[in-house]
Structures are given as C-alpha cells and as structure tokens.
C-alpha cells in the first residue's frame, strides 16, 4: 500500500491535532488532582489560631476517598476529624480546627480525583501568638 505525501501529511496533522486537543481541552478529560492553593497558605505564619484549613485542588475530587488532616509537631492529629468536600465546589476540601497554641503544624492531604487517580501531599504552617 502506498500513501501519497499529501495524504500522509494530512493524517499526521490530524493525529497531532487529536493529541493536542485531548491534552489541551480543560473539560475534555480528567487528570490527577493537585494542590492549587490553601488557607492558611503553604509555609505561612498566621497570628492567632485559624478556625479551619481549606485546600483548593486543580480538579474535582471524590468525597468518599479524600481526606485532610492536621498534625502538631509531635505527629498527633489535632484537627476535628470532620474533613469534607464542599458540595457546591468539589475542588475544595476543609477541616475544622480547635484553638491551636503557637507552634508548627503539618497538613496531610490525600485525594482521589474523579478519574480515579490518587495523589497526596503535605505542607506546613505556623501559628504565632
């Protein structure tokens, strides 16, 4: 079988366009969920105890298989263990905090994005008097 150069060129461009469109289309597919930003901010120092930790992700996540926890410098979990995905925006997850004494705290997040890929990560923040 022999293909003409023009046919081959068109087919190649079509294949490349297909791949590019699949990659670029923001709603055409799903991907791993990564941290977009958080409050308290990653690595920040806040004055006074924050009432909660809120994390925004780059993709929607599955509430049943995603969690957020906060530990103190001794590794003890200190959040209220009520982490939840915002039903009106499934890219957002929150967990409530008790009144925290000054110190460093670490946030662990583990999420399952809607395409079933799991990702996890950590970041720290500090509470100052």
């Amino acid at each position: 079988m022999s293909l003409t150069r023009q046919t081959c060129r068109r087919a190649a461009l079509a294949a490349l366009a297909f791949l590019a469109s699949a990659a670029l289309a923001p709603s055409g597919g799903f991907a791993h969920a990564f941290l977009d930003h958080a409050l308290p901010s990653v690595g920040s120092t806040v004055h006074g105890s924050p009432g909660e930790v809120t994390v925004w992700f780059t993709q929607e996540i599955e509430p049943a298989f995603s969690n957020l926890r906060v530990v103190d410098q001794n590794g003890a979990q200190i959040d209220k263990q009520n982490n939840a995905v915002d039903p009106s925006d499934r890219t957002v997850m929150k967990v409530s905090l008790p009144k925290l004494p000054p110190g460093k705290y670490k946030v662990f997040w583990h999420v399952l994005s809607v395409d079933t890929h799991t990702t996890d990560g950590t970041f720290s923040f500090e509470v100052a008097p």
């Binding site: 293909l3 003409t4 150069r5 081959c8 060129r9 087919a11 190649a12 294949a15 490349l16 297909f18 791949l19 699949a22 791993h32 399952l112 395409d115 079933t116 890929h117 799991t118 990702t119």
Partner: peptide, 30 residues
Amino acid sequence: IDGAVIRFLVGAGLVAGAAMLVGQPDPAGA
C-alpha cells in the same frame, strides 16, 4: 519530512488515540 516519517508519526499518534474507546478506570498512582 518525507512520507516514511509522516507514516511513522501517524502510527505513533494513532497508537495513542485509538485505544480511548473501552476500559474501566483503575486506582493508579501519578
């Protein structure tokens, strides 16, 4: 680019594109 190269690119592109049709999701790491 000559025809052979283009056919090669077509093949590579279509390998990636052709298998989108079936299958079930699985929990996979990144």
